[in-house]
Amino acid sequence: MKQDFSLLVIVAVVWAVLALLYATVPMFHMPGYAAVWGLGAVVFLALAAAIAAASRRERKRHEHHGEASHE
């Protein structure tokens, strides 16, 4: 799951950088592109967060089962 999270974060970063480029560099100034790539970065960050949350839940479940089996 760590790889899944990392890959989605990398995607979000690439999209965010490009959104910044389109928004700030005069030669590339295209607000529509900036908005879509920026929103896209948010979407992929959200997906990464969902995967991270699922991983945390899985780790807690393992810890809980580990404690229960020692009792």
Partner: peptide
């Protein structure tokens, strides 16, 4: 969600691809 419920350990390549594909669909909708 199966991961939250502890029914699965890791994402298969198709599982990951489905998330990536779904993400791109969401962006396209926007």
């Amino acid at each position: 969600l199966p991961r939250f419920a502890g029914r699965t350990v890791s994402l298969s390549p198709i599982g990951f691809a489905s998330i990536a594909w779904a993400g791109l669909l969401m962006v396209s909708a926007l």
